[in-house]
Design a protein around this nucleic acid. Structure first.
Lengths: 349, 349
DNA sequence: CTCGCATCTGACAACGTTGTCCAGGCTCTA
DNA sequence: TAGAGCCTGGACAACGTTGTCAGATGCGAG
């Protein structure tokens, strides 16, 4: 039997631990190779008796189809890639899960990668995923230049950007309404009588941070309030710098009576500062936080729906793959103001 | 030029959107196929001039190596699979991220899948990953019978189970010390004078839940306390059932003065119940929660280090792949009691 | 000037699967 | 009983890459 010989010729212990192939199954069942393929894929044209024999051989050998070979032949991998910032961040867990669910509904697997907010790593990851020939790519940008993806997109890799827009290329983008959300949150504070309102946010080179800052400025301008320079603190991220920034705007001759925080990490630190502060200070944070309702007072937030972001992006991705989609679009999902107490405190001055 | 003809023969629009292959690069650079392969893989034996010509052709065509074909040829995919319960659960985010980091250090990508606590889906996912020929598999079990993985493990798929032990097969397992942690947490309550202590946990068919229950019983027995049946509530998971269970053990003739909660979801609900409760009740929860220190009182927890679980498991996985590892082992990581106030409340009866 | 050696290059097969196509056997009808 | 048509099964090539091996090229030494 030449078949057996060929397998024995192999170096021992190499290659998938010598897994059985369709050829082996065919030999054992005494049928042709293609017949095994037909059974494995549920294709018609196999008599029940043959099918049974093949199935028995499959079970006996513990055969499992090698999807790598299948992919090579068929040209579709039935997998999509997700490049995000940090899976350990509670904001991205639900997003990733939502993408996964949509992928699952389309029979695709999800390959995940964290860029750690490093543009180079984002590129490295995205291109590695392309080399795997993922059918599509959902990217939460870390960098601001995505021209490196142009050849991939031209080659047919469906691509959607989430949370932040793509840089220097035309592509589908799904965003939260950062500007509107921040503007609404600050307006909420103003409506409760505040005029000296602080803003602590991330580096403005990050799109979301810039948009939220813009929202803050717009709300203040709407109310005819001139923003003092020391009310704003931009680009601080580490807890102790946030702490210092908050303490600074809370002291001095012109202390703020309310603070708007630009993301959940900042919010958490500010909550700690305020907990030690004697005078009550109103607070509205961008991004919801688990247990926000159990704090004293409950935390008022501008919440974005990270799962919806992921779902929307993934659905759009698969519509690209269907060919249902033509021109790139920019989708903005609304945010929601959730009042729980901290944002409704009156100014104490 | 026969090369061009062959490609033109293809059906238009199929297969990766007609990406260039090494053959195309070779044709354009006027070199042989294997030379391109050498350049792409940085193999020696190519003159600088040839290398430059090839590199130019690669850039001009936007070529990117097809890893599917590479995998088929080489037999290793440089990717590992992670089957967990729910990526949106804050417990699994850091775990997944830790696995990813270790994978990255070994040049591997991570394919993620959520089982949604459904054994069938776990199996389906794990086998799909095996069909992709992942080099290894990190599984957080949903089911309790993993014999379906035996052929895969025999075929060389490295496998490590995390958080819960594998069912009915001998395999590497990395766990938290659920028993010891719960026992310590309950002992902590007893040390603060409590004797009527409630326990609310998940279904005992889940290993972690059973172990934590066992820890509770052991601590109570250590202190010579007989546990009343209505102090324990097992298998409740939905918020309203937890709520009812908590309210029940807090009322009646023999109300508990302290509660030990078996996981973070339960803890959150119980915190809500206690917030509405007039009499102060001590609380220790299994699993840490973000912002636990900002609650009133701060939440005392038995914390497990989910990142360490993931890291340990992944490292073990790659040591299996190195061949450094022989016999399956069971590793237990310690938990840590973090006191923040809620567990140090004296009994109020 | 020719031979030998080292260096660089390319032809070819193989990885495991699927699509195409044809052969053989069967049934049904005339 | 012979011919037509259908159904099942198998041979073969192709997917894009890498390993093997042999051929070509260039150089120096005799």
């Amino acid at each position: 039997m030449p078949e057996t010989t060929r397998r024995a010729d192999r170096l021992p212990g190499t290659r998938y631990g010598n897994r059985p192939t369709m050829k082996d199954v065919a030999a054992r069942a005494g049928v042709g190779l293609k017949t095994v393929s037909r059974v494995v894929n549920g294709e018609p044209g196999v008599t029940p008796d043959t099918e049974r024999r093949v199935q028995e051989a499959i079970d006996a050998l513990g055969f499992r189809r090698n999807d790598s070979a299948r992919v090579l032949r068929k040209g579709r991998t039935a997998s999509i890639g997700l490049v995000l910032e940090d899976l350990a961040d509670p904001f991205y867990g639900p997003l990733s899960r939502a993408v996964e669910e949509v992928a699952r509904a389309h029979g695709a697997l999800l390959i995940n990668g964290s860029s750690a907010e490093d543009p180079e790593r984002e590129q490295e990851l995205a291109l590695a995923l392309c080399a795997r020939r993922v059918d599509g790519l959902v990217v939460i940008p870390a960098g601001d230049d995505h021209r490196y993806l142009e050849p991939e997109i031209r080659a047919g890799v469906a691509t959607v950007f989430v949370d932040r827009p793509a840089g220097r290329i035309d592509a589908d983008v799904v965003l939260s309404d950062n500007y509107g959300g921040a503007r609404g949150g600050v307006a909420h504070l103003i409506a409760h009588g505040h005029r000296r309102i602080g803003f602590i946010g991330d580096m403005p080179r990050i799109h979301t941070a810039a948009e939220r800052l813009r929202g803050y400025r717009a709300a203040m301008e709407d109310a005819g309030i001139t923003v003092e320079g020391h009310w704003m603190s931009l680009g601080v991220t580490s807890p102790d710098r946030v702490r210092r920034a908050a303490e600074e705007m809370l002291s001095g001759t012109d202390p703020v009576t309310a603070i708007f925080t630009g993301n959940n990490r900042v919010t958490v630190t500010v909550i700690r500062v305020l907990a030690e502060h004697s005078r009550p200070v109103a607070l509205v944070g961008f991004d919801d936080i688990e247990l926000a309702d159990l704090l004293q007072p409950g935390l008022t937030v501008v919440a974005q729906d990270s799962a919806a972001l992921g779902r929307t992006a993934a659905e759009r991705l698969f519509r690209q793959l269907d060919g249902t989609l033509v021109a790139p679009e920019r989708i903005e999902l609304p945010t929601r103001l959730i009042t729980r107490g901290s944002g409704e405190l009156p100014p104490a001055d």
